[in-house]
Design a binder for these strands. Structure first.
Lengths: 146, 146
DNA sequence: CCTTATGGACAAGTAACTTGTCCATCAAGA
DNA sequence: TCTTGATGGACAAGTTACTTGTCCATAAGG
Protein backbone atom coordinates (compact mmCIF):
# COMPACT_ATOMS: atom_id res chain seq x y z
CA UNK A 1 0.00 0.00 0.00
CA UNK A 2 1.12 3.53 0.52
CA UNK A 3 2.42 3.12 4.02
CA UNK A 4 5.86 3.50 2.53
CA UNK A 5 6.03 7.26 2.49
CA UNK A 6 4.22 7.45 5.81
CA UNK A 7 6.66 5.00 7.35
CA UNK A 8 9.65 6.96 6.09
CA UNK A 9 8.27 10.26 7.29
CA UNK A 10 7.35 8.81 10.67
CA UNK A 11 10.75 7.25 11.24
CA UNK A 12 12.35 10.53 10.29
CA UNK A 13 10.07 12.52 12.57
CA UNK A 14 10.66 10.07 15.39
CA UNK A 15 14.42 10.20 15.15
CA UNK A 16 14.34 13.96 15.04
CA UNK A 17 12.17 14.10 18.13
CA UNK A 18 14.27 11.60 20.05
CA UNK A 19 17.41 13.57 19.32
CA UNK A 20 15.75 16.83 20.20
CA UNK A 21 14.32 15.52 23.44
CA UNK A 22 17.60 13.99 24.56
CA UNK A 23 19.38 17.18 23.68
CA UNK A 24 16.87 19.27 25.60
CA UNK A 25 17.24 17.15 28.73
CA UNK A 26 21.01 17.18 28.56
CA UNK A 27 20.98 20.96 28.15
CA UNK A 28 18.69 21.27 31.10
CA UNK A 29 21.19 19.35 33.21
CA UNK A 30 23.62 22.19 32.65
CA UNK A 31 25.38 21.05 29.49
CA UNK A 32 24.17 23.92 27.35
CA UNK A 33 27.29 24.06 25.24
CA UNK A 34 26.81 20.57 23.79
CA UNK A 35 25.09 19.64 20.56
CA UNK A 36 23.61 16.22 19.71
CA UNK A 37 26.58 15.17 17.62
CA UNK A 38 28.80 15.58 20.67
CA UNK A 39 26.91 12.81 22.43
CA UNK A 40 27.83 10.34 19.74
CA UNK A 41 31.43 11.51 19.91
CA UNK A 42 31.41 10.87 23.66
CA UNK A 43 29.96 7.42 23.07
CA UNK A 44 32.90 6.55 20.84
CA UNK A 45 35.57 8.18 22.97
CA UNK A 46 34.29 6.49 26.12
CA UNK A 47 35.12 3.12 24.57
CA UNK A 48 38.78 4.09 24.80
CA UNK A 49 41.58 3.71 22.27
CA UNK A 50 40.09 6.37 20.01
CA UNK A 51 41.98 8.75 17.74
CA UNK A 52 40.53 11.70 15.86
CA UNK A 53 40.63 9.65 12.68
CA UNK A 54 38.66 6.84 14.34
CA UNK A 55 36.11 9.39 15.44
CA UNK A 56 35.83 10.77 11.91
CA UNK A 57 34.99 7.34 10.57
CA UNK A 58 32.50 6.67 13.35
CA UNK A 59 30.66 9.94 12.69
CA UNK A 60 30.92 9.65 8.92
CA UNK A 61 32.67 12.97 8.44
CA UNK A 62 36.10 14.04 7.22
CA UNK A 63 38.93 13.92 9.70
CA UNK A 64 39.19 17.70 9.49
CA UNK A 65 35.60 18.00 10.67
CA UNK A 66 36.30 15.54 13.48
CA UNK A 67 39.42 17.49 14.42
CA UNK A 68 37.37 20.69 14.69
CA UNK A 69 34.83 18.91 16.84
CA UNK A 70 37.55 17.52 19.11
CA UNK A 71 39.20 20.93 19.35
CA UNK A 72 35.88 22.38 20.46
CA UNK A 73 35.35 19.66 23.08
CA UNK A 74 38.88 20.12 24.40
CA UNK A 75 38.37 23.88 24.61
CA UNK A 76 35.15 23.34 26.54
CA UNK A 77 36.82 20.94 28.93
CA UNK A 78 35.11 17.66 28.02
CA UNK A 79 37.95 15.90 26.25
CA UNK A 80 41.70 15.60 26.63
CA UNK A 81 44.34 14.49 24.12
CA UNK A 82 46.94 12.03 25.38
CA UNK A 83 50.06 11.03 23.50
CA UNK A 84 49.70 7.66 21.83
CA UNK A 85 51.96 5.04 23.43
CA UNK A 86 53.10 3.45 20.19
CA UNK A 87 52.57 6.11 17.52
CA UNK A 88 54.17 9.53 17.76
CA UNK A 89 51.80 10.97 15.14
CA UNK A 90 48.58 9.95 16.83
CA UNK A 91 46.87 11.25 19.96
CA UNK A 92 44.48 9.19 22.03
CA UNK A 93 41.29 10.90 23.11
CA UNK A 94 39.88 10.63 26.61
CA UNK A 95 36.97 12.07 28.54
CA UNK A 96 37.45 14.45 31.45
CA UNK A 97 35.22 14.17 34.50
CA UNK A 98 32.90 16.71 32.83
CA UNK A 99 32.87 14.48 29.76
CA UNK A 100 31.84 11.46 31.83
CA UNK A 101 29.14 13.50 33.56
CA UNK A 102 27.72 14.59 30.22
CA UNK A 103 27.76 11.00 29.01
CA UNK A 104 25.81 9.87 32.08
CA UNK A 105 23.30 12.69 31.56
CA UNK A 106 22.81 11.64 27.94
CA UNK A 107 22.23 8.02 28.95
CA UNK A 108 19.62 9.06 31.44
CA UNK A 109 17.99 11.41 28.93
CA UNK A 110 17.80 8.65 26.34
CA UNK A 111 16.10 6.34 28.81
CA UNK A 112 13.55 9.02 29.61
CA UNK A 113 12.90 9.80 25.97
CA UNK A 114 12.39 6.15 25.08
CA UNK A 115 10.28 5.38 28.14
CA UNK A 116 6.93 6.16 26.42
CA UNK A 117 7.74 3.52 23.84
CA UNK A 118 8.59 0.88 26.41
CA UNK A 119 5.37 1.54 28.26
CA UNK A 120 3.13 1.73 25.22
CA UNK A 121 4.49 -1.42 23.60
CA UNK A 122 5.26 -3.43 26.69
CA UNK A 123 8.66 -4.85 27.49
CA UNK A 124 8.30 -7.88 25.24
CA UNK A 125 7.24 -6.07 22.09
CA UNK A 126 9.74 -3.33 22.73
CA UNK A 127 12.58 -5.84 22.88
CA UNK A 128 11.27 -7.42 19.73
CA UNK A 129 11.29 -4.04 18.03
CA UNK A 130 14.85 -3.35 19.11
CA UNK A 131 15.81 -6.78 17.80
CA UNK A 132 14.15 -6.06 14.46
CA UNK A 133 15.89 -2.72 14.25
CA UNK A 134 19.22 -4.34 15.01
CA UNK A 135 18.67 -7.00 12.41
CA UNK A 136 17.30 -4.79 9.65
CA UNK A 137 19.43 -1.71 10.09
CA UNK A 138 22.87 -2.24 8.64
CA UNK A 139 25.61 -0.66 10.74
CA UNK A 140 26.60 2.75 9.51
CA UNK A 141 27.85 6.11 10.64
CA UNK A 142 25.85 7.99 13.25
CA UNK A 143 25.08 11.31 11.70
CA UNK A 144 22.42 13.90 11.06
CA UNK A 145 19.73 12.41 8.89
CA UNK A 146 20.63 14.39 5.76
CA UNK B 1 17.69 -2.18 30.49
CA UNK B 2 20.04 -0.20 28.36
CA UNK B 3 18.25 -0.63 25.10
CA UNK B 4 17.46 3.05 25.32
CA UNK B 5 20.61 4.39 23.74
CA UNK B 6 20.69 1.53 21.26
CA UNK B 7 17.11 2.21 20.28
CA UNK B 8 17.81 5.91 19.75
CA UNK B 9 20.92 5.25 17.74
CA UNK B 10 19.19 2.60 15.64
CA UNK B 11 16.21 4.81 14.85
CA UNK B 12 18.58 7.58 13.90
CA UNK B 13 20.67 5.30 11.72
CA UNK B 14 17.55 3.88 10.11
CA UNK B 15 16.08 7.24 9.24
CA UNK B 16 19.39 8.39 7.81
CA UNK B 17 19.60 5.30 5.65
CA UNK B 18 16.02 5.55 4.44
CA UNK B 19 16.54 9.16 3.43
CA UNK B 20 19.82 8.38 1.76
CA UNK B 21 18.44 5.41 -0.14
CA UNK B 22 15.39 7.31 -1.36
CA UNK B 23 17.59 10.18 -2.38
CA UNK B 24 19.95 7.87 -4.26
CA UNK B 25 17.09 6.28 -6.20
CA UNK B 26 15.54 9.61 -7.08
CA UNK B 27 18.90 10.93 -8.26
CA UNK B 28 19.36 7.83 -10.36
CA UNK B 29 16.03 8.53 -12.07
CA UNK B 30 17.57 11.73 -13.39
CA UNK B 31 16.70 14.18 -10.64
CA UNK B 32 20.27 14.88 -9.64
CA UNK B 33 19.63 18.46 -8.68
CA UNK B 34 17.24 17.57 -5.86
CA UNK B 35 18.08 17.12 -2.18
CA UNK B 36 16.04 15.15 0.36
CA UNK B 37 14.42 18.23 1.84
CA UNK B 38 12.98 19.03 -1.57
CA UNK B 39 10.92 15.87 -1.48
CA UNK B 40 9.13 16.99 1.65
CA UNK B 41 8.54 20.39 0.09
CA UNK B 42 6.97 18.66 -2.92
CA UNK B 43 4.79 16.59 -0.61
CA UNK B 44 3.39 19.75 0.95
CA UNK B 45 3.04 21.71 -2.30
CA UNK B 46 1.28 18.82 -4.01
CA UNK B 47 -1.54 19.13 -1.49
CA UNK B 48 -2.37 22.49 -3.02
CA UNK B 49 -3.17 25.82 -1.39
CA UNK B 50 0.39 26.25 -0.13
CA UNK B 51 2.24 29.51 0.38
CA UNK B 52 5.91 29.92 1.17
CA UNK B 53 5.01 30.66 4.79
CA UNK B 54 2.99 27.44 4.99
CA UNK B 55 5.97 25.56 3.64
CA UNK B 56 8.25 27.16 6.22
CA UNK B 57 6.04 25.93 9.02
CA UNK B 58 5.77 22.45 7.53
CA UNK B 59 9.55 22.14 7.22
CA UNK B 60 10.21 23.79 10.56
CA UNK B 61 12.46 26.50 9.16
CA UNK B 62 12.24 30.28 8.90
CA UNK B 63 10.22 31.71 6.06
CA UNK B 64 13.42 33.16 4.62
CA UNK B 65 14.90 29.66 4.38
CA UNK B 66 11.69 28.41 2.76
CA UNK B 67 11.76 31.31 0.32
CA UNK B 68 15.31 30.41 -0.70
CA UNK B 69 14.29 26.79 -1.20
CA UNK B 70 11.28 27.83 -3.30
CA UNK B 71 13.42 30.19 -5.36
CA UNK B 72 15.79 27.31 -6.08
CA UNK B 73 12.96 24.97 -7.08
CA UNK B 74 11.47 27.64 -9.35
CA UNK B 75 14.84 28.24 -10.96
CA UNK B 76 15.24 24.51 -11.59
CA UNK B 77 11.79 24.23 -13.10
CA UNK B 78 9.98 22.15 -10.50
CA UNK B 79 7.72 24.78 -8.95
CA UNK B 80 5.74 27.77 -10.14
CA UNK B 81 4.36 30.73 -8.18
CA UNK B 82 0.77 31.73 -8.93
CA UNK B 83 -0.91 34.89 -7.69
CA UNK B 84 -3.16 34.22 -4.73
CA UNK B 85 -6.84 34.74 -5.65
CA UNK B 86 -7.81 36.55 -2.43
CA UNK B 87 -4.56 37.97 -1.07
CA UNK B 88 -2.37 40.30 -3.10
CA UNK B 89 0.59 39.74 -0.78
CA UNK B 90 0.67 35.96 -1.03
CA UNK B 91 1.64 33.62 -3.87
CA UNK B 92 0.34 30.09 -4.20
CA UNK B 93 2.88 27.42 -5.03
CA UNK B 94 2.29 24.70 -7.59
CA UNK B 95 4.24 21.85 -9.12
CA UNK B 96 5.27 21.80 -12.77
CA UNK B 97 5.14 18.57 -14.74
CA UNK B 98 8.77 18.01 -13.71
CA UNK B 99 7.73 18.55 -10.11
CA UNK B 100 5.04 15.89 -10.38
CA UNK B 101 7.46 13.49 -12.05
CA UNK B 102 9.94 13.94 -9.21
CA UNK B 103 7.18 13.36 -6.68
CA UNK B 104 6.21 10.10 -8.36
CA UNK B 105 9.86 9.02 -8.45
CA UNK B 106 10.18 9.73 -4.71
CA UNK B 107 7.04 7.71 -3.95
CA UNK B 108 8.39 4.76 -5.85
CA UNK B 109 11.80 5.09 -4.21
CA UNK B 110 10.22 5.15 -0.76
CA UNK B 111 8.31 1.96 -1.52
CA UNK B 112 11.49 0.27 -2.65
CA UNK B 113 13.46 1.42 0.38
CA UNK B 114 10.81 0.21 2.79
CA UNK B 115 10.25 -3.08 1.00
CA UNK B 116 12.84 -5.03 3.04
CA UNK B 117 10.94 -4.09 6.19
CA UNK B 118 7.62 -5.24 4.81
CA UNK B 119 9.11 -8.56 3.80
CA UNK B 120 11.07 -9.16 6.97
CA UNK B 121 8.23 -8.31 9.32
CA UNK B 122 5.34 -9.54 7.25
CA UNK B 123 2.39 -7.42 6.24
CA UNK B 124 0.58 -7.74 9.56
CA UNK B 125 3.45 -6.79 11.82
CA UNK B 126 4.51 -4.04 9.47
CA UNK B 127 1.07 -2.47 9.61
CA UNK B 128 1.15 -2.78 13.36
CA UNK B 129 4.49 -1.01 13.44
CA UNK B 130 3.20 1.82 11.26
CA UNK B 131 0.20 2.10 13.56
CA UNK B 132 2.46 2.28 16.61
CA UNK B 133 4.60 4.90 14.95
CA UNK B 134 1.54 6.93 14.05
CA UNK B 135 0.20 6.71 17.57
CA UNK B 136 3.45 7.35 19.43
CA UNK B 137 5.04 9.95 17.21
CA UNK B 138 3.48 13.36 17.77
CA UNK B 139 3.09 15.33 14.55
CA UNK B 140 5.92 17.72 13.97
CA UNK B 141 7.97 19.36 11.28
CA UNK B 142 9.74 17.13 8.78
CA UNK B 143 13.36 18.13 8.96
CA UNK B 144 16.92 16.91 9.12
CA UNK B 145 17.41 15.11 12.40
CA UNK B 146 19.59 17.77 14.02
C1' DC C 1 66.85 2.45 3.38
C1' DC C 2 63.24 4.16 0.17
C1' DT C 3 58.55 4.48 -1.02
C1' DT C 4 53.95 4.89 0.10
C1' DA C 5 50.26 5.32 3.57
C1' DT C 6 48.44 7.58 7.66
C1' DG C 7 47.40 10.91 11.75
C1' DG C 8 47.04 15.38 12.20
C1' DA C 9 47.45 20.68 11.56
C1' DC C 10 46.52 24.87 8.94
C1' DA C 11 43.92 27.57 5.63
C1' DA C 12 40.23 28.74 2.74
C1' DG C 13 35.81 27.83 0.53
C1' DT C 14 30.81 26.46 0.64
C1' DA C 15 25.91 25.17 1.65
C1' DA C 16 22.13 25.77 4.19
C1' DC C 17 20.63 27.84 7.14
C1' DT C 18 19.97 32.15 10.57
C1' DT C 19 18.89 37.21 12.19
C1' DG C 20 17.65 41.76 10.97
C1' DT C 21 15.17 45.03 8.34
C1' DC C 22 11.83 46.74 5.30
C1' DC C 23 7.54 47.14 2.50
C1' DA C 24 2.85 46.12 0.73
C1' DT C 25 -1.28 44.28 2.01
C1' DC C 26 -4.73 42.43 5.07
C1' DA C 27 -7.99 42.14 9.12
C1' DA C 28 -10.37 44.06 12.84
C1' DG C 29 -11.74 47.38 16.09
C1' DA C 30 -12.91 52.40 17.41
C1' DT D 1 -13.60 54.79 7.34
C1' DC D 2 -9.50 55.39 9.38
C1' DT D 3 -5.97 53.49 12.01
C1' DT D 4 -3.37 49.98 14.27
C1' DG D 5 -1.22 45.72 14.50
C1' DA D 6 -0.31 41.24 12.11
C1' DT D 7 1.20 38.71 7.99
C1' DG D 8 3.39 37.28 3.30
C1' DG D 9 7.24 38.18 1.16
C1' DA D 10 11.81 40.38 -0.54
C1' DC D 11 16.54 41.85 0.26
C1' DA D 12 20.93 41.81 2.70
C1' DA D 13 24.31 40.13 5.78
C1' DG D 14 26.03 36.95 9.29
C1' DT D 15 26.79 32.16 11.22
C1' DT D 16 27.75 27.31 11.51
C1' DA D 17 29.13 23.00 10.44
C1' DC D 18 30.86 21.19 7.45
C1' DT D 19 33.92 20.63 2.90
C1' DT D 20 38.34 20.57 -0.27
C1' DG D 21 43.14 21.40 -0.65
C1' DT D 22 47.74 21.36 1.03
C1' DC D 23 51.43 20.27 3.94
C1' DC D 24 54.36 17.88 7.45
C1' DA D 25 56.02 14.25 10.65
C1' DT D 26 55.89 9.63 11.52
C1' DA D 27 54.94 4.79 10.43
C1' DA D 28 54.98 0.39 7.88
C1' DG D 29 56.39 -2.77 4.28
C1' DG D 30 59.30 -4.07 0.36
Amino acid sequence: MDDALAFSALVLALSGQLVQEIHARVSQQGFEDLRPAHGFAFARISLGDTTTADLAEHLGVTKQAAAQLVEELVRKGYVVRHPHPHDARARLLGLTEAGWAATRAADQAARAAVAPWREALGEARFSELVADLTRLTPPGPIRPAW
